[in-house]
Nucleic acid binder design. Structure first.
Length: 386
RNA sequence: GGGCAGUUGGCUGAGCAGCAAAGGCAUCAGACUGUAAAUCUGACGGGUUCUACCCUUCGCAGGUGCAAGUCCUGCACUGCCCA
């Protein structure tokens, strides 16, 4: 079980400072949840991940089920022992893979859409996903989803029951209910139908769960105000320990914060709110101001493996040849273990030489930078500045 | 001194009569938000009225051909072998 205490509520915004207690320790919120899909923060050992001042990680049900299989984790004594991470862990349910391996793959899109939504591919727009449409590789049914493994193409089925059973064996502190992350190209009707499915699955997840792990329900509803309200009301009426907010949030740069507030307004104040899969630094600050306590995102770790360092000067692409001449830390203001010792010229060299340590150094720095960024926001909330 | 092989855009390396010239690397630009991702996309001789056209390129100088990076002659340089 978990307990969540709100220590301070901002007068300037919806932001709040909280303490999330789990049997593996406390998480001070608002908090970034680094992504450890395969029971690893890619390129880092768990000790290193801890040194980035990460408080809690999120792993993935779908991927751990495929490899190595939840039985391996169960036999090792659960995910904490398996990966030697002593702090809290959450697992995502596999609901995101319904999108990412389905329509996301078919249309080459992410959950935050860039191009305008229209029905005319000739005009540069993407096709709208209509009610009854199915992705090419997977099949979404009322009971769950038939997947094709991205590893070997083998077939597997994941529904609320399967997801919860797997998550119980994985043994994270916080688990998520199985949902469909609705694609941004979905029509209103598709999103509404999908929402009903996600709601039914939410009830099933609560019915099935036997452990004392905390279970978070997930609010969907896409970019539609009425559906977001409906979903938030429905999910928050169920005895979840916290709430995830998933799916799309409209076009980039648009009104993500407004959409979050539609949901947050309906959620019980005293339970933690987790924004799934967001975000960039500017999104993080916005989300926190909108009342979000936890948020996971692949950006700091993923961009690290693209050679990108997040710094007080903005994003730096260390692959660029000019960094070979820079004998200075990634970020002059950063005091992470990497910035204290290594310089841009070296990191750039490692990237250009294809050396894996480059990714480790950048992953470490980016996570530290993001965690520090969030800590600064917490400080500002405490001071009443945000 | 003689014989053979070679000289292609920043590098590498195809092409052996219809080419601004395959691949790869490098470079530059773009993408990436609950990780199918150490990935993907685009540009990469120059110019313009840029789904098209023009100009300049394949060691150098000539020649043959409607047409030459591609064939011929000479020269220069490089590598290997023989003296």
């Amino acid at each position: 079980m978990i307990s969540f205490k709100i220590l301070k509520k901002s007068k300037e915004s919806n932001a709040r400072i909280g303490f999330l207690e789990t049997s593996h320790g406390v998480v001070e919120t608002p908090c970034l949840v680094p992504v450890a899909t395969q029971a690893v923060v890619k390129t880092l050992t768990s000790e290193e991940a801890s040194e980035t001042r990460s408080q809690i990680l999120i792993s993935n049900t779908f991927h751990l089920h495929l490899k190595p299989g939840e039985k391996v984790l169960e036999k090792s004594g659960g995910i904490h022992k398996f990966m030697n991470w002593k702090r809290p862990i959450m697992t995502d349910s596999g609901g995101f893979q319904v999108f990412s391996l389905g329509f996301g793959r078919d249309f080459g899109i992410g959950k935050v859409l860039k191009s305008s939504i229209n029905n005319n591919p000739q005009a540069g727009g993407k096709k709208v996903i209509q009610e009854g449409d199915q992705p090419q590789k997977i099949k979404i049914t009322q009971d769950g989803v038939y997947f094709q493994s991205p590893i070997d193409g083998s077939k597997l089925f994941l529904g609320p029951k399967e997801s919860i059973k797997i998550q119980e064996k994985i043994g994270a502190d916080i688990i998520f209910s199985f949902d469909e992350c609705t694609p941004p190209l979905a029509s209103y009707e598709y999103t509404k139908k999908s929402l009903i499915k996600t709601h039914n699955w939410a009830k099933s997840c609560l019915d099935i769960k036997k452990t004392n792990q905390a279970l978070f329900g997930i609010v969907q509803g896409g970019r539609h105000k009425d559906l977001r309200h409906e979903s938030a009301k429905f999910i928050s009426a169920l005895p979840f320990d916290g709430f995830g907010i998933g799916g799309e949030f409209g076009k980039e740069g648009n009104k993500m914060s407004e959409m979050i507030e539609w949901v947050v307004d309906e959620l019980p104040e005293k339970k933690p709110r987790h924004l799934l899969g967001i975000g960039y630094l500017k999104d993080i600050e916005m989300a926190i101001k909108s009342g979000i306590d936890l948020f996971d995102c692949t950006v700091p770790t993923h961009y690290a493996r693209r050679g990108i360092a997040f710094t007080s000067e903005g994003k730096l692409d260390l692959k660029q040849i000019n960094f070979l001449k820079k004998r200075e830390p990634l970020d002059k203001e950063c005091v992470c273990n990497v910035c204290l010792v290594y310089k841009k010229d070296y990191v750039s060299h490692l990237l250009r030489a294809g050396e894996l340590t480059a990714f480790k150094l950048l992953t470490f720095h980016n996570l530290y930078y993001f965690n520090n960024f969030v800590e600064n926001i917490r400080t500002k909330i405490k001071k009443g500045e945000i």
